[in-house]
């Protein structure tokens, strides 16, 4: 009986788990819109680089790059249609990355900034 129990053990949570998102297909039409948006974004970022906006130049370039990256992550990488587990994983990764950058930068800024 012990063997039987082991063999037939199925956690029903795994079968009926609402976390398992409905499988969603992104269509070629939607991919084409994403593709066009990314190309337009590239054109804008190159154009913006040649306009003198002072300190805003790198900020705008990074804002466009972040927007394009989010579009790629949401649609090409299907994160928009994934379960909450995957969304949390992706979000946690970027949050950890920002924390590491922020803490390292604050260390450099508070120790030797301007002394090199």
């Amino acid at each position: 009986m012990a063997h039987d129990t082991e063999h037939h053990y199925h956690d029903p949570m795994n079968v009926t788990n609402p976390e398992h998102a409905e499988h969603h297909l992104v269509t070629p039409g939607q991919y084409s819109i994403v593709f066009g948006t990314l190309l337009v974004g590239t054109a804008i970022t190159v154009g913006a680089a040649y306009v003198d906006m002072g300190v805003l130049n790198p900020i705008i370039a990074l804002a466009i790059a972040c927007t394009k990256a989010v579009i790629v992550i949401l649609f090409f990488m299907h994160v928009k249609y994934q379960s909450r587990l995957i969304k949390m994983t992706v979000g946690a990764g970027f949050l950890t990355f920002i924390i590491l950058i922020g803490m390292t930068l604050s260390d450099y800024m508070s120790r030797a900034w301007g002394l090199w």
Partner: peptide, 21 residues
Amino acid sequence: WHFVDIVWLFLFPLLYLINRH
């Protein structure tokens, strides 16, 4: 493959573009 794309989406403006002015 998309991840490698994203890395380039940041490399291009940071290395090539943000120092033009």
